[in-house]
Design a protein around this nucleic acid. Sequence first.
DNA 1: CTTCGAATTGACTTTTACGTAAATGCCGTG
DNA 2: CACGGCATTTACGTAAAAGTCAATTCGAAG
Lengths: 128, 128
Amino acid sequence: MREYYSITELTREFDISTRTLRYYEDEGLVHPVRRGRTRLFRPSDRHLIRQILRGRRLGFSINEIREIIQMYKEPPGEVGQLKLMIKRIEERRAELRQKRRDLEETLAELDQAEESCVERLVELGVNT
Amino acid sequence: MREYYSITELTREFDISTRTLRYYEDEGLVHPVRRGRTRLFRPSDRHLIRQILRGRRLGFSINEIREIIQMYKEPPGEVGQLKLMIKRIEERRAELRQKRRDLEETLAELDQAEESCVERLVELGVNT
DNA sequence: CTTCGAATTGACTTTTACGTAAATGCCGTG
DNA sequence: CACGGCATTTACGTAAAAGTCAATTCGAAG
């Protein structure tokens, strides 16, 4: 496990811009340490970036991603907070299950669409 | 099957604003007919709205949604177009499968997080 | 020491997906 | 016919998530 990653290494690995990584830092999502002015990202930051991009691909906003990442962290110490956290987690899961239904439906329709296309090709006598 | 739906009926059904529906019309995603200046949405439009919102929940942009909806329509008549269409569909499916992986991973992490919270509650001696 | 390239900062710009407000049209009811 | 209640059009506003550009600055190589 590497100790540090430079900003450009990570932009290459994840195919994002430096601007994006700095933006995520401004938003408090990652916390690279500094050597002089240079950012040094640790494996934990790298892991956070993975999670951020995952959230992004699923259509979550930065604020939502921030919330979700909070949930991955150490659970809070106070009972009220814990119960609230569990409620929030449950809400997110419901949302994700909705997304999963949406996803399955969309995939099914695309399967259908592709099949129609292939049929059409066969009608036209194209040898696949 | 109703013949027409008014704009407000649909805004209530789908919990979106009239602005949003007019925007989708501007963007050429739906095509309500007019009685005078009033929009009348047909069942096909209603179905389109379903598909649009599904895409929206999955984080697709309007342009992407437009593309995806194109795919659901009648396949094109020309061979080159058909092959291109199949390629596009395949790309979208790959993207959706990626989203599905993202989704499963996120769900798994949330399960983990919730479990931690529950454990913590038990430690604190809270009777669930 | 100079120079070069990579990194940083800050400011400004852009795109997307609507929100919002103002002015006006249409229509059924009392 | 006046009215309330939707609808419409036009226009401007805005928040999120970066892109872009200019001016520096740092550190390492020559």
